[in-house]
Amino acid sequence: MISGGGPAGSDDAHDSGSRDAAAGEGDDQSGDEAGGSGQKKQRSFWKELPLLIGIALLLALLIKTFLVQAFSIPSDSMQNTLQQGDRVLVDKLTPWFGSEPERGEVVVFHDPGNWLAGEPTPNPNAFQKALSFIGLMPSAEEKDLIKRVVGVGGDTVECKGTGPLLVNGQALNEPYVFPGNTACTDDTEGGQFKVKVPEGKLWVMGDHRQNSMDSRYHQDDPGGGFVPVDNVVGRAFVIAWPPTRWATLPVPDTFDQPGLAAAMSAAPGALGLAGAVPFVVWRRRRARA
């Protein structure tokens, strides 16, 4: 038993030492693997960083192209609704679904006929150009304007004396007009007019009526002062900067007058009635026969 006990004790000691050694080696390997894993993660982050930046820039470019774009207000023509230096966000998505500008909306549009001739052109640096390209800053190279739509295709827009402005014979109550301004100007250059807006075109005016070179003053141009719907970039829906000026840009209630909509729907209704009369007469004759 004694002789048998010796080898047994010896085996126990050997096995215990082996397990301790194996455990130590295991710990070393775990530490190596942990250290290697940390180094691998750090290396992979720096490798993925350019990809992440590229994806972010691509998303910003897509948002600018199809969803929302920032624009800067360069003049006082839309006071007090918009002040010079305001940054507005413009909805570019809805036009992709066939939506067209409506009366009362504030829209950004490409210069339809050299309206900005003689205006100074900004000279941005390379960094500003890059930010403009991805939509994080307003574009300084595109010749765009911002005005309020007061007439759409089929509307008759008229100014007599100092106002009010008439759309399809309905007088507009315009609380957004710059304080101290009249709705119409009594000058002969363009303040007095009566126009019929062609289909696919818009008649636009600034809220600062005495300080806005809008559709009124381009009636002698080839386009007659009208803005093609295809030139519209989108609707300005919010003032995003500066923070103290944050506000939405809803359509004023004055453009919800029943008379405005009725004027537009009268012609289609009359055409539908005229088309229905012959059909009713034919049905009655057939019934009698």
Rank of each mutant, 00 (worst) to 15 (best):
D186H: 07
L131D: 08
K147E: 08
N125M: 14
V107S: 04
G161K: 01
V157F: 10
K143Q: 13
L136S: 00
P120C: 08
A117V: 10
G98P: 11
K194A: 11
N173V: 06
F133S: 14
D186Q: 05
A140C: 08
D155R: 04
V149F: 07
T188R: 10
L136Y: 02
L131V: 08
F127E: 12
F127T: 15
Q192K: 04
Y176K: 15
N168I: 00
E105D: 12
F109P: 08
S99M: 12
S99L: 13
E105Q: 14
F133Y: 09
T162M: 05
G118H: 06
V195D: 00
V197R: 08
W115P: 03
G154A: 12
E158F: 02
M137G: 10
T162S: 02
G118R: 08
G190L: 13
S139G: 15
C159T: 11
G153S: 15
P179T: 11
G163V: 06
F97L: 13
L145N: 11
T94C: 13
E119L: 12
R148I: 01
Q128K: 01
F178M: 11
L145Q: 15
V177C: 09
P95G: 04
C184L: 00
F109C: 09
V107I: 15
L172W: 08
A126F: 15
G169I: 04
L136C: 01
L116V: 08
A130N: 13
K143V: 13
Q128H: 01
E100N: 07
F127H: 03
V152G: 08
G113T: 15
C184W: 03
C159N: 10
Q192A: 00
P120T: 12
N173Q: 15
L165Y: 00
A140I: 05
E100F: 02
G161F: 07
D111Y: 14
P95I: 06
P112H: 14
P138L: 15
K160E: 14
C184D: 01
V107H: 09
H110Q: 14
P175I: 06
A117W: 10
E102I: 04
E174N: 02
K129R: 13
E119H: 10
Y176F: 15
L136G: 07
L145D: 09
P124C: 09
W96T: 00
P95R: 13
F193R: 10
P138C: 05
N125W: 14
R148P: 00
N168D: 04
D186E: 10
V106Y: 09
I146E: 01
K147N: 02
A140R: 04
T182C: 06
F193C: 08
